[in-house]
């Protein structure tokens, strides 16, 4: 479908209309923290943020998610599915986060279909917005991404002045544009303006490396002393994994409210926690920070390629920004390129 335009001063009205039919999910500021939240109107939506502290993964893979409700009364097990999810519009996510959803698709849509994830995925229209002001920690272009293209999104908006250029990237996006057609105009030279925006943004990136050679190097670095050195400063908290848009590890727990009724839920878990792999008998295949830190970085930069054929670091820079001890995956990538793998 041909590109469209959307006047900037029309966005709030559009989102208000969206919120009337769909569940609108958009970035808002909770005190100082920008995060995606379900909204009943466009009030409070922030447009000038670079990226949210938490990725939008919560809306496909919630931190805590009911799997089913149960009753065990009268020695009978009754299992009921969770309440259905409404059709949603996820507005304002960045291209790196769109790529992270593609990465998670590979995990949840495999030999076993994860119906919780796939149901939400199917019911979500993703409206991405190109980045014009990358943060010093952003490095999507170093890992194969782009701040101004978002394959996998349904619509991509790019700020080209008074209007957004609207690229329609899927049938879902097309249906959205048709449904709200009164807000969209036809493209008239904005595509050319986007090329200029792209050039300007690219020049703003402080971080520029590439993944070239990194995977090949890591293939032979499992026993490298680098990991022990790196792990010393790690606190073993889950900050990096919880702010990561592709980290998808979870635990499954039962909540029994009265001895008979309750729910089974899954919740984010982190490979950085000691008890994550500790077995009931006490054996732990990843007993120290060294093994856990190594596993996380290999997962992002090597295992994901081996298993899913793509990287699980999208360069959003969240862990770089939020890690309490500045244990930065960008530094790891740079270090891996430098170190002698044969040590």
């Amino acid at each position: 479908m041909a590109n469209k335009t959307l006047k900037k001063d029309q966005v709030v009205s559009l989102l208000n209309k969206v919120a009337a039919t769909y569940q609108l999910i958009a970035p808002v500021a909770d005190d100082s923290v920008v995060m995606f939240k379900p909204l009943s109107s466009a009030e409070g939506v922030v447009f000038d943020y670079v990226n949210s502290v938490l990725p939008p993964k919560d809306y496909f893979f919630p931190q805590t998610e009911q799997m089913f409700k149960f009753s065990t009364r009268n020695n009978q097990i009754v299992i009921n599915p969770p309440d259905p999810v409404k059709e949603r519009v996820l507005f304002g996510i960045r291209p790196c986060d769109v790529q992270s959803i593609i990465a998670m698709d590979k995990v949840f849509d495999r030999e076993y279909k994860d119906t919780y994830y796939l149901d939400k995925r199917a019911k979500t229209t993703i409206i991405a917005v190109s980045c014009t002001e990358p943060l010093p920690t952003c490095f999507c272009t170093s890992v194969g991404g782009s701040p101004t293209s978002a394959p996998g999104a349904d619509l991509l908006l790019t700020d080209v002045g008074d209007v957004y250029l609207v690229e329609v990237l899927s049938e879902k996006g097309e249906a959205f544009v048709q449904k709200f057609s009164e807000f969209f105009g036809n493209e008239n030279g904005e595509g050319a303006k986007k090329a200029e925006v792209e050039k300007a943004v690219a020049a703003k990136f402080v971080r520029t490396t590439s993944l070239e050679g990194v995977k090949a190097k890591l293939d032979n670095m499992f026993e490298h002393p680098y990991w022990e050195r790196l792990a010393r400063k790690c606190l073993g908290c889950a900050c990096c994994t919880y702010v990561c848009p592709t980290c998808h590890c979870f635990d499954i727990c039962d909540f029994n409210s009265n001895g008979f009724e309750g729910e089974r839920f899954r919740c984010w878990d982190s490979c950085m926690f000691a008890d994550y792999t500790r077995m009931a008998g006490g054996h732990n295949p990843r007993p120290t920070k060294k093994e856990r830190v190594r596993n996380r970085f290999l997962h992002k930069l090597k295992y994901s390629w081996d298993r899913y054929g793509l990287g699980h670091c999208v360069g959003c820079g969240r862990c770089s920004r939020e890690c309490p001890v500045n244990l930065d995956i960008y530094t790891v990538i740079s270090d891996v390129k430098e170190v002698d793998a044969n040590v």
């Binding site: 076993y112 792999t277 500790r278």
Partner: peptide, 24 residues
């Protein structure tokens, strides 16, 4: 092998040995 597993279907992450998942 016996590793700690939760989902059993190759998603929850904890039973990996390298890029292989013990559960699948």
């Amino acid at each position: 092998l016996e590793l700690k597993m939760k989902c059993g279907i190759g998603k929850c992450g904890r039973c990996n040995i390298g890029y292989k998942y013990v559960c699948v």
